[in-house]
Design a protein around this nucleic acid. Structure first.
Lengths: 86, 86
DNA sequence: AAAATATATGATCATTTATTGAAATGTAAA
DNA sequence: TTTACATTTCAATAAATGATCATATATTTT
């Protein structure tokens, strides 16, 4: 699970999801990566249950899996830079 | 930082340190690994500031770096298996 | 049903990362 | 001041990981 969050690009996705649901294309745009790359990254995060997803028509919306994950990400950010307010 | 904790063997060391300080030889014995291997793992944890160390004579004692790390580890354990009491 | 859009999958390849034994370092004891 | 002990570093090999691309699947629109 930590390993899944351990890649900078995947962590970046988790951080983006702190603000709410996003679809793959949105994440691709925000992180400037190919959709297939993003899809791969999401697959890893999904397999470690760091994120969940729901389908809406042809879109797939991803979100953080639960409050543990949210706590974890915030905790990591705080450890990395305690000066950033929560 | 997450990557440092993302290796199962290194995470195992962090878990052991939840209970308090340990010296390298103790960790080696507990995890059944070569001391040089343990030393390498500790170096990674140290470089990401997940652990700190102090020297006492020829022994080197390692401990978790701070409360963030402790929170992080407990949070990970809880996410992995919420049935384990804290 | 075909076309268009959105996402997922699998294979490959380059890069990173981990492990190990041997040599080196630092500390204390004889 | 030699010897022993604990830990670290080094260099080499072995293994795991991530990016990319071509292809596949799913859903909606026409």
């Amino acid at each position: 699970m930590l390993r899944a969050g351990g890649d900078p690009e995947r962590l970046r996705i988790l951080e983006l999801l702190l603000s709410g649901e996003l679809q793959v294309s949105e994440i691709a745009a925000l992180t400037k990566a190919e959709m297939s790359t993003v899809s791969q990254r999401l697959r890893v995060l999904l397999s470690e249950e760091l994120v969940k997803r729901r389908r809406n028509g042809r879109d797939m919306f991803y979100r953080l899996a639960d409050s543990h994950v949210e706590t974890l990400i915030r905790n990591v950010i705080d450890h990395a830079d305690p000066s950033i307010p929560h």
